[in-house]
Design a protein around this nucleic acid. Sequence first.
DNA 1: ACCTCACATTGACACTCGTCAATTTATTTG
DNA 2: CAAATAAATTGACGAGTGTCAATGTGAGGT
Lengths: 114, 114
Amino acid sequence: MARRVIDVEVTSSLDTCQPLAAHVMSESEADEVARVFNALSDPVRLRIFSLIASGAEVCSCNLEAPVAKSQPTVSHHTRILANAGLIVGEKRGRWTYWRVVASRLDQVAELLHT
Amino acid sequence: MARRVIDVEVTSSLDTCQPLAAHVMSESEADEVARVFNALSDPVRLRIFSLIASGAEVCSCNLEAPVAKSQPTVSHHTRILANAGLIVGEKRGRWTYWRVVASRLDQVAELLHT
DNA sequence: ACCTCACATTGACACTCGTCAATTTATTTG
DNA sequence: CAAATAAATTGACGAGTGTCAATGTGAGGT
């Protein structure tokens, strides 16, 4: 097979940064996804979440002592977790029982493998 | 089969919140996990991450335009993602090429299914 | 009705975080 | 060495966040 010498410009074609075509997540999608991860980005919230995930049903009054935070603080965190769709609260009598939303967890896990 | 009537105390045993034995994530573990989720809790960081994940290797200069942020801001975000172990940067010449750490993503995904 | 208890809400404070202009560091090229 | 470029660092500012005391709400229990 014949060989042919080709004059290729190598010296100065890479000395400056070239644009690159790549796919970017949309702003709106990023906002929504960020809100979910944000709910899990606080140590206290993670511990509250692990408490709820460990039992079948946990009421708010059982969360304050383990995480050593005040009642308004715990209420603040459960609201953020609930807004992110990670937990749901059912009010029975004076108590609110929390449980995790398994389907939401699967949804979040899939976001990491795209 | 015989039936027997049993006198059960129902009235006042549940009128106050009872402590509940449950497993709590440790503070140190919560801090570490929170740092990872925190890295993914910002919209701009998520879009940068998606850019890096879409290509095999992406240099920092290819990140500024798509997310419309300044160079110091992009550098700030890549550092946070790198500290969380989600991406690694290899410096070749004047450029730093970023790529995602797949094993770290698997690790994070498993955290959601415990 | 009154009191108690579980939980939500408000307001205020300190602290963290995202952002960019300016500067510095490191590397390549002339 | 000098000029140019990629990227990290510093400093500063406004916005957002975690925290708790005080208060509000609503559902039992006596």
